[in-house]
């Protein structure tokens, strides 16, 4: 246990370094984009004079490293700063969006993780049979279509034709829990269709991989039922790779859903990031990217810890 804690501490330390590196890269990258906030906001109606005034008021005329250090100074004290475009507190701007994003990711995860494990185990059990092939073909097709296409098909069937679910999921704070859930179902289903294949295939492959091992053969020779062999003997040993894939997909559900957000008008973090990049609102871009980077760092850490717990040998790589 002590070893695990040491590893966690070390990884968190690395994580901080990664975040710092990410923030420097982001600041540099946004700087490389053509135009700045003043030009993007004023757009066609910009004149030299009010551009200059705009930059002066927001401090955009200062060199990039100076702006970065000011921002970093605030950040270290836990102050995300204000959006340059509309002077709102970023923590406030992002808080609601982050909650929405996590909410959607949670619903999608609750549907997709058990579903794909279940499908994967069954596929391993009845491998190469008609069930296995059907599941493979279906999930692989749903992952191969672009997300917005899957979304449109779902809207067309479930919303326009059957009138079961709303076509847009513009959830807001004042909706009651039931209505919120109802509005989040379609995007969650879309995301489920997108991530199931990956997790399902990994479960199947990891289990099948083990089925050739001597201890499984022993179990079979003992006369155990195939279902029991897979769930009790093979699955615990196959958990490490499965956990990794599951966690990778969880990260995707949080950071990679901008297309789904646009199609369903879901007010999540992705849309905020896209808007801020296109308007060059650097503090907001930074804040979003740090949240995304943190998601990856923490989830990866979680994956490793869970893998080690399921298989302590991993703590001592040879």
């Amino acid at each position: 246990m002590h070893d695990i804690l040491k590893m966690i501490a070390r990884r968190l330390g690395f994580g901080l370094g990664t975040l710092l590196a990410v923030s420097i890269i982001i600041a540099g990258a946004v700087e490389l984009l053509p135009g700045d906030l003043a030009q993007e906001i004023l757009g066609q109606s910009a004149t030299e004079e009010n551009l200059a005034q705009f930059r002066k008021e927001l401090g955009l005329d200062k060199p990039v490293y100076e702006r970065y250090l000011t921002w970093l100074g605030g950040m270290v004290q836990g102050d995300f700063g204000k959006s340059l475009a509309n002077q709102r507190e970023i923590s406030e701007l992002m808080g609601v969006r982050l909650k929405n994003t996590l909410y959607l990711a949670a619903i999608a995860a609750v549907i997709s993780v058990p579903l794909s494990l279940f499908l994967g185990i069954l596929a391993a059990l009845y491998r190469n049979g008609i069930y296995d092939r059907t599941v493979n073909v279906t999930t692989l097709s749903s992952i191969s279509f672009p997300e917005f296409f899957v979304a449109y098909i779902l809207i067309f069937v479930l919303s326009v034709h059957l009138d079961l679910l709303p076509s847009i999921s513009n959830i807001s704070e004042d909706l009651d829990a039931g209505e919120r859930l109802r509005r989040a179902v379609l995007p969650a289903l879309t995301l489920t269709l997108v991530v199931v294949a990956h997790m399902m295939r990994m479960t199947r492959a990891a289990i099948i991989n083990l089925l050739a091992s001597p201890y499984i053969e022993m179990a079979r020779l003992k006369g155990l039922k195939p279902g029991r062999i897979i769930t009790k003997h093979a699955l615990p040993n196959a958990l490490a790779p499965i956990i990794n894939v599951v966690v990778l997909n969880l990260a995707y559900l949080i950071v990679g859903v901008v297309v789904v957000e646009v199609v369903f008008v879901y007010p999540g973090l992705g849309q905020l990031l896209v808007d801020s990049v296109s308007k060059r609102d650097i503090p907001v871009v930074q804040a979003c990217c740090l949240v995304f980077a943190m998601t990856f760092i923490l989830l990866n850490l979680l994956a490793d810890v869970l893998s080690i717990l399921s298989n302590p040998r991993l703590l001592h790589p040879r």
């Binding site: 919303s159 326009v160 009138d163 076509s167 847009i168 513009n170 646009v262 199609v263």
Partner: peptide, 16 residues
């Protein structure tokens, strides 16, 4: 704000 025109059209046809 519904930036996507298909989403906007769907929202109108489904009464959202």
């Amino acid at each position: 704000t519904i930036a996507d025109v298909a989403a906007r059209t769907n929202a109108l046809t489904t009464g959202e």
